[in-house]
Computed example of a mutant assay.
Amino acid sequence: MDLQTLTYTVVGFTFALYIGIAFWARASTTGEFYAAGRGVHPVANGMATAADWMSAASFISMAGLIAFNGYGASVFLMGWTGGYVLLALLLAPYLRKFGKFTVPEFIGDRYYSRTARIVAVICLILASITYVIGQMKGIGVAFSRFLETDYDTGLYIGMGIVFIYAVLGGMKGITYTQIAQYCVLIFAYTVPAVFISMNITGNPLPQLGIGSTMADGWHVYAGQA
């Protein structure tokens, strides 16, 4: 089997898996569509959230931004990750407690203010547009490379797949699809890091191998000598 056929097979299997999950977990109530029925296990929810962080916006766009702009661009990574933590600690639990489906709805009722609701809507739209731009750019680039098509075609294919499982399953379908993506992404993140660490330092644990290299630079200088 040549590389292109293998690529089509793997990508096709992945698409089929995501669409199958969407059919299996399709939402039948408003609560399931907007909040996955509020019955997702915390571990599964954590996996879905992690997959959302390790998405095209991080895996391609954020990595490219840091690689292109250097160390200074790491502040975007800190803000990106810190924002997730703040939302998880300060907003998500109370959104669930209040029984609301959207952040503006919660903010408006929590502060008894229509103005606060409008501000929340504006902030949400700005944040979502910024996030979606990175996601769509990553989808278009990845799919065009894997499927050997032009950028626009790759983007439309990716958007179509996302549209299918988002519309069918709502938050319930997206959550379980994200869990499947988490398994793929954590493997894609971990394996290269392990082999890079082994190649540079001989230690399979990047935190110990590459961390010590960055700390004192001894391995780098020893390799150049």
Rank of each mutant, 00 (worst) to 15 (best):
G99F: 04
A50L: 14
Y156F: 13
A50R: 01
N69K: 14
G37E: 10
F59M: 14
V75I: 13
V141M: 10
T9R: 03
F15H: 05
F15R: 09
E148D: 12
I129S: 03
G82P: 00
V85Q: 00
F101N: 13
P93Y: 02
Y112I: 15
G209I: 02
A120Q: 01
F15S: 08
S197V: 06
P206R: 00
I125Y: 12
T9D: 00
F143E: 07
R26M: 14
R110I: 11
I161F: 05
G158Y: 09
T130F: 04
W53H: 07
F15D: 03
F195G: 01
L65R: 02
R96K: 12
A142P: 03
Y112V: 13
M171P: 01
G209C: 00
I60H: 06
A127K: 01
G202K: 00
G37S: 10
L91H: 01
L86H: 02
A63V: 12
G37P: 08
L208Y: 03
G72H: 06
A222G: 03
I179T: 04
T175Q: 04
Y189W: 08
V167E: 03
Y151H: 11
R38C: 08
A22M: 05
V85M: 07
G140S: 07
V85I: 15
A225F: 14
T149A: 08
G158R: 06
Y71C: 01
C123M: 07
I107A: 06
Y84G: 03
G223N: 08
C183T: 07
P42H: 03
L95D: 05
V162K: 08
W24M: 11
Y112S: 15
I157E: 07
A116N: 11
I196P: 06
G160A: 04
R26H: 04
T175R: 03
T102K: 09
V40Y: 07
L89E: 04
K97W: 06
D150T: 06
E105P: 05
L3R: 15
A127T: 10
F59Y: 13
V141P: 10
D109P: 01
T14L: 15
S212E: 15
A22R: 05
D150E: 07
L6T: 15
I186Y: 04
A193T: 07
G211C: 02
I118W: 13
Q207S: 12
A44N: 09
A142E: 11
G46T: 10
W218E: 14
A51G: 05
L6D: 03
I60A: 11
R114G: 10
F187W: 14
A120I: 03
